[in-house]
Design a binder for these strands. Structure first.
Lengths: 156, 156
DNA sequence: CGCAGAAATTTGAACTCTCAACTATCATCG
DNA sequence: CGATGATAGTTGAGAGTTCAAATTTCTGCG
C-alpha cells in the first residue's frame, strides 16, 4: 500500500482548468453540430473518417480504430447513421465476418455542409486564444500523453 | 458569407492528437472510477465539490456552476446520488425556490475511498508523461482557452 | 396590493453510451 | 476433416445526458 502521490497545488490548478476548458470545448462543439447538422460530434467524426478513406469505405474494425470507439458504440452509431441514409453497410465478399461501412452521397453532402461551421468553432475556441508557440506546445503535450498510453490495456 | 478558414496541416495534427489524448484520458478516468467507486467522473466531481464547500453544502445553482453542468443534468445526477445515499437535498429556509444539496457521511466516505485511485490515474495519464515545463505550458494554454470563452453565451 | 416577468429547479422523452452476452465466421493444428 | 480458439460484429438492457416544457417561488413595479 503506497502512499498516495497527491497533486501539488499547481497540478491541481492545471487539472481543474483542464477540466473546465474541456467542458466548454465539448459543450460548444456538440451544441454547434447538433444545431447545424443534427448529430453529435462522435457521429461527425465517423463521417469525416469515412470521407477520407479510400473509396469512402472502411470495415467496422478499421473505423473503430480511427474514431477511437468501442465496437459496440460504433455499431450503434453506424446503425443510426444508416437509418439517416448517411452511411451504408454491406458484407465483405470474402470474409463473412467483416462488415464494410461506406459514406453515401447524402452523408458526404451533410458532412460538407457541416464542416465549415465546425472548423470555425474549433478554431475560435481552441486555436484563436492561443499563440503559435502555444499551439506547438499543445501539440507536443498531447503527443506525449498519447505516447504515454501506448502499451497500456486499450479497453475500448 | 466569409470563406472558411480551414485548419493548417499543423493545426489539423494538433487537433487530432488532442481528440485522441482526450478520448484516452476520459475513457481511462471513467472506467477507473466506475470500477473502483461505481460512479462516472461527473458524479465524482459533484461529490468532490460538495466536500470542499462550507458545511459540505451548496445550492443546486452554485453546484451547477462549480461542476459546469446544466441544471437539468445536475438535477438528474443529484437524484441518483441521493438515491445512493451520498447526497441529501433539502429546501432553503427563506427562499422556497432553491434547493440545498449536502454531502452525507456515506458520500464523504465513498469520495475519500475513491480519491487516491483517481488521483493516481490522473497523474499517470496526464502529468507523468509531461515535463514540468510542459505542465506549466498546459496550465497557460487551458487558462487561455477558458479566458477566450468568457463573455460567450454559456448555453449550459 | 396584484400582476408580469425572472429565477431555481424538476420532469419526461428521446438519444447516446457502456457493459456483458451472444452470433457468426475464420484460422489452426492434431 | 473437425474441434478449439480467435476475430468481427451485433444486440439488449441499464445508465447518463440533452432538450424542451413545466412547476414553484420570488421580485419589482404600477
Amino acid at each position: 500500500m503506497k502512499a498516495t502521490r497527491w497533486l501539488s497545488d499547481d497540478e491541481q490548478r492545471v487539472w481543474r482548468s483542464y477540466l473546465l476548458a474541456n467542458q466548454l470545448l465539448w459543450a460548444s462543439l456538440d451544441r454547434q453540430l447538433q444545431r447545424d447538422a443534427g448529430m453529435p460530434h462522435a457521429y461527425y467524426i465517423i463521417l469525416a473518417m469515412l470521407s477520407e478513406a479510400p473509396n469512402r469505405e472502411l470495415t467496422m474494425s478499421q473505423l473503430a480504430k480511427v474514431v477511437i470507439s468501442s465496437p459496440s458504440r460504433l455499431s450503434h452509431a453506424v446503425a443510426k447513421l444508416e437509418q439517416a441514409g448517411w452511411v451504408r453497410r454491406r458484407k465483405h465478399e470474402t470474409d463473412g465476418r467483416t462488415t464494410l461501412a461506406s459514406l453515401t452521397d447524402d452523408g458526404f453532402a451533410v458532412l460538407a455542409a457541416a464542416a465549415p461551421g465546425h472548423v470555425e468553432e474549433v478554431r475560435s475556441i481552441l486555436f484563436d486564444p492561443l499563440t503559435p508557440e502555444q499551439v506547438d506546445q499543445l501539440g507536443a503535450i498531447v503527443s506525449a500523453i498519447v505516447a504515454g498510453q501506448d502499451g497500456r490495456p486499450p479497453h475500448l
